[in-house]
Design a protein around this nucleic acid. Structure first.
Length: 973
RNA sequence: CGGCGUGUAGAUCAAUGGUAGAGCGUCCCCUUUAUCAGGGGUUGAUCCCGGUUCGAAUCCGGGCGCGCCGACCA
């Protein structure tokens, strides 16, 4: 350190950097040619600089370039070869949840598939064996519905097999479409051999899982209400129901008190409770009366009788009954009424009605219409059914396929519920004195059949169920959930709630497009046949011929010759016509895919789906795997949030706020879409809109241009011969590697924890702040003005080369196309000649580059640089200096800071990108002060610094000494 | 209506209960040697109301908004 405490730097003047001891490096053509021409004009000197050369175009033109790169991968068979690499860390199986094959993909699909792709690509590069087998869910109502509509518009009624054939074709078509769409997003996987739930082998697997479920005692046959069209004699799905106005007879029905343990009613009656209904035909099926636990109910006396009903509805009810005066006797919470008992209102009409109708509690009871007392018929309503289950009521449904009462309805047997049933029931009630007021026509929205438009009924039918509480299964499931890793952690609450509260799984559907439930019925005794032998026979059939055969082959031909009914010895059988719920199909993918495919295994490391799948696939897969294999099919479950638009509302095609992946790919390219995926915290709902896309496009360009600059300065750099060893690098260059090492560390952690947005932000900041705004800006002078093969330039290039190499590989799972493009223009080092970047390994953390002490020293320098920049800005605004390069800055620093800066005194001008920097020691305890003044001397025509040494060499009067030396050196070659 | 989440600058993301940060964008300036680029400066936020605490973006309670799942329309 100099004695007067005053260091002056005119930046690295005089001494030309030592040329590296290497033979004849190929000098850049331009420099060589022009270095020899006579100096004089700026134009000439420009040609003596080592300016960057375009390696990749600034405009990405991804829409065109990406498909070309895609074709390259296919030629190189990159997917398969990536799997053939050594995988020291073992297998890592991400199991694909199958999307439904019935339309173009939407942004939710794109989000999900791209996230999966990030994971499998990263794990592959990180040394895992991580194949990706995409799949599709093919069976199910949405397709059957579409296909049925097609037939219907042509006025045709297809056979079951014809319908199934069309469905299969329909599904196959969309599989192909979606496959192309996913591939266009850069999603990599076994596209030429995906799994389809309609494949014969898969269908057979479904039967196998079902058989095992039966064997383990989980399956039972029971009643459950479904929508039923009495004229078409078929069950209907939610989607096949149209709500249209209908006029129904509404009645107030009196239920006489039977038993009053709580003392709700007065001693002298008669006492009743009142229920309102618009479906009198369901009264024969009444088994209970539902009260809301928190609603206030009152007993009122009017015209010699007492009535119990909800307080807010007394007035309206009395009015409807034509009663003008009443007295309020008592008030009770609904919860109190539970346990009270009433008689069926038709008691006395027929012995079948000689039964009680107990008061039960249900939270769905409202006080908007009626009496607050809900007539409950478990056989005729979903909610009533659940209440029935909770209270142990039977599921009574005395209505046949044609909508006529059965013998269970007593005197009404044979009457059609709508045509005569309502009237007959009303008349009977009337005779019993069980009506309060008159029958009143009531118009409301009522479900109708989508085919015949007739009114439908809700009717209990035989269904197949999986018993969730079988042998403590629910508790086992809840425990198993604890053993799975959930991302985000909160999602465990959801799956837990779903499993804790889910009712038995209704496995059957009265449809055609699916896997037939492999049950037989004995024609003689009518019993269900589900034996190991019968199941095996069905399995054999489906495995060989697919599930179509189940519908085509007669029962006797499926069953082994001589098969006899185990109950009665009968030999004639019919087949179950119901199919399995499609959730059963996808819930069995662990069996049909993980256990079947070479290279995969059960359980998978990861499932990753949208948050709706807690009820769906996560749930169904868990149920089946746990029931049949005693463990969950996944070790880790990741959920991605929902797609929202820019304002935070869900994307809906019908709302017009949806953005299709195709649009984005066309306009911006798949890499921009992928970058967007990486930028969002997808554990939460994610937003997408024009502004967000613009931001991502900007970020993409920043990253791309960084690569462009890096590659642009490596045109004459051969890593095998030109690289400078780490130890020989100047401190600034080591700082850059230190920052790179930190980035790699953070990036790797982000990948491991599936938090890609942390990687995105780290990379972007690295490119924008560390590189663009500082390191690259500072080393431009070195890169451009030094002799091409000088140590100074080669040092910088070594760092640029390493950054390119590592950054490209770090980003390869995200920007799959762009990184490939970068790699194609990159001169790899020894042992790095991968044909595709996607065959390269993830870069290591490179801890040897990390130097925290160095990092801290440079934090100081960088904060001083910020101070300098602020002063330069002021000086510029005040007209004191024109631009930084024409300025001299003078720093006056207190001792401690001064001592930290002094070792860098010679470099400050370079770091600040000014012509000169002076460092002075200020009084102790003072603040750093910075002063900017115009630089004296002339501007060098070549490096644009304003330096005293300009004109020092008579051969080049317009150049500073350093540039003159460089030019002369070039001329000598 | 219920369950589970969620709410930080314009948008995307950070902040063991301890000074609310980052880059991007906006606006202004510089640059023509990354130029359909690059540099510098500037601007701006904890949904609302209570509570616990010396101290709350963070913990608790209540609202409001948004999302997913489910229920409802007798």
């Amino acid at each position: 350190m100099t004695g007067d405490g005053d260091l002056t730097t005119a930046r690295s003047t005089g001494t030309p950097p030592p040329a590296e001891a290497r033979p004849e490096a190929p000098a850049p053509d331009g420099a060589r040619q022009n270095g020899a021409t006579a100096p004089g004009t700026e134009q000439d000197y420009r040609a003596t600089l080592n300016l960057p050369r375009e390696a990749i175009p600034m405009r990405a033109n991804l829409a065109q370039r990406e498909p070309e790169i895609q074709a390259l991968w296919e030629r190189l068979d990159v997917y398969r070869r990536s799997l053939n690499r050594a995988a020291p860390r073992g297998p890592f199986i991400l199991h694909d949840g199958p999307p439904y094959s019935n339309g173009d993909i939407h942004m939710g699909h794109a989000l999900n598939k791209i996230l999966k792709d990030f994971i499998t690509r990263h794990r592959t590069m990180a040394g895992f064996y991580s194949p990706y087998v995409p799949g599709w869910d093919n069976h199910g109502l949405p397709i059957e519905y579409e296909v049925t509509k097609e037939f219907r518009t042509r006025g045709e009624t297809p056979s079951k097999l014809a319908l199934r054939q069309r469905c299969r074709k329909f599904a196959r078509r969309w599989v192909e479409v979606q496959k192309r769409e996913f591939q266009r997003l850069g999603v990599r996987g076994e596209w030429d051999n995906p799994y389809l739930t309609m494949d014969h082998t898969f269908e057979a697997k479904i039967v196998e899982v079902f058989a095992e479920l039966v064997k383990r005692g989980f399956v039972y046959h029971g009643l459950k209400p479904v929508y039923w069209c009495p004229s078409d004699e078929t069950a209907l799905a939610e989607a096949e129901i149209e709500y249209t106005p209908k006029v129904s007879p509404s009645i107030y029905v009196l239920f006489p008190l039977r038993h009053d343990p709580k003392g709700i009613f007065p001693a002298q009656g008669p006492n009743y409770t009142v229920a309102w209904t618009t479906t009198p035909w369901t009264i024969p099926a009444n088994l209970a009366l539902a009260f809301h636990p928190d609603v206030d109910y009152v007993v009122v006396r009017a015209e010699e009788a007492c009535y119990l009903l909800a307080e807010p509805l007394v007035e309206a009810t009395m009015h409807a009954a034509g009663i003008a005066d009443w007295d309020l006797l008592s008030r009770h919470k609904g919860a109190e009424i539970e346990g009270t008992d009433f008689w069926h209102p038709l008691r006395g009409v027929d012995p079948v009605y000689d039964r009680p109708s107990p008061a039960v509690l249900a939270s769905y009871v409202t006080v908007e219409t009626g009496t607050g007392v809900v007539h409950t018929a478990p056989g005729h309503g979903e909610e009533d059914f659940r209440t029935g289950l909770a209270y142990g009521l039977r599921t009574l449904s005395p209505v046949d396929d044609q909508g006529r009462f059965t013998a269970e309805a007593g005197p009404f047997a044979g009457l059609h519920v709508f045509h005569q049933g309502n009237d007959a029931v009303n008349a009977a009630l009337q005779r019993q004195g069980a009506l309060l007021g008159a029958v009143t026509p009531y118009e409301h929205q009522y479900p109708h059949c989508w085919r015949c438009h007739g009114a439908i009924v809700f009717r209990a039918t035989n269904q197949w169920f999986m018993k969730i509480d079988h042998n403590g299964f629910r508790q086992r499931a809840l425990k198993a959930i604890q053993g799975v890793r959930w991302h985000p952690a909160e999602s465990i609450n959801r799956i837990t709630a779903m499993v804790a509260g889910r009712p038995d799984w209704c496995l059957s559907r009265q449809r055609s497009w699916g896997v037939g439930i492999p049950a037989f019925y004995c024609e003689s005794c009518g019993e269900v046949i589900l034996t190991e032998e019968s199941l095996a026979a069905a399995h054999r059939l489906v495995r060989e011929w697919g599930s179509d055969a189940w519908f085509a082959v007669p029962a006797e031909e499926i069953l082994p010759r001589g098969f006899q009914c185990p109950h009665c010895g009968g030999t004639r059988f019919t087949k179950e016509t119901d199919i399995l719920d499609v959730w059963f199909d996808s819930g069995a993918t662990w069996a049909g895919v993980l256990e079947e495919r070479e290279g995969l295994h059960f359980p998978a490391e990861v499932y990753l789906e949208g948050s709706d799948q807690h009820r769906g696939w996560f749930n169904s897969s868990l149920m089946l795997a746990l029931a049949v294999r005693d463990q969950p099919p996944y070790q880790t479950v990741i959920t991605n949030g929902w797609m929202l638009d820019e304002t935070g509302r869900a994307m809906h095609k019908s709302w017009g706020n949806a953005i299709s992946p195709e649009e984005v790919v066309k306009q911006h390219g798949a890499d921009v879409l992928r970058l967007w995926v990486s930028s969002a915290d997808y554990f939460e709902d994610v937003r997408l809109g024009p502004q967000i896309l613009q931001r991502v496009t900007d970020a993409y360009r920043r990253i791309r241009n960084t690569f462009r600059f890096l590659l642009g300065n490596l045109y004459d750099f051969d890593p095998a011969t030109d690289a400078v060893s780490d130890a020989e690098l100047p401190e600034l260059d080591r700082w850059a590697l230190h920052r790179l090492a930190l980035l790699l560390e953070r990036g790797n952690v982000a990948y491991e924890t599936f938090e890609f947005h942390r990687l995105y932000h780290a990379v972007h900041t690295f490119c924008a702040v560390d590189l663009s705004a500082f390191y690259l800006d500072v080393i431009k002078d070195r890169l451009y003005t030094s002799v091409p093969d000088s140590r100074a330039r080669r040092s910088a290039q070594t760092v640029l080369w390493r950054i390119t190499d590592h950054l490209a590989r770090l980003l390869a799972p995200i920007l799959v196309f762009t990184c490939e493009e970068v790699w194609s223009r990159f001169e790899p080092g020894p042992g790095q000649r991968w044909e595709s970047i996607h065959l390269a390994p993830m870069p290591d953390a490179h801890t040897q580059w990390r130097d925290d002490a160095l990092g801290e020293r440079w934090d100081t320098l960088l904060s001083v640089r910020d101070a300098v920049n602020r002063v330069l800005e002021e000086a510029k605004a005040a007209g004191i200096v024109e631009r930084p390069l024409a300025a001299v800055v003078t720093l006056t620093a207190p001792l401690d800071l001064y001592e930290r800066l002094a070792p860098y005194a010679d470099e400050l001008a370079t770091l600040f990108i000014v012509s000169q920097a002076l460092l002075r020691q200020g009084p102790a305890g003072s603040e750093l002060t910075v002063e900017a003044t115009p630089a004296g001397g002339r501007r060098c025509d070549r490096c644009w610094l304003t330096l005293p040494s300009v004109g020092a060499r008579s051969e080049h009067p317009a150049l500073c000494e350093r540039c003159a030396e460089a030019v002369m050196e070039l001329a000598r070659r």
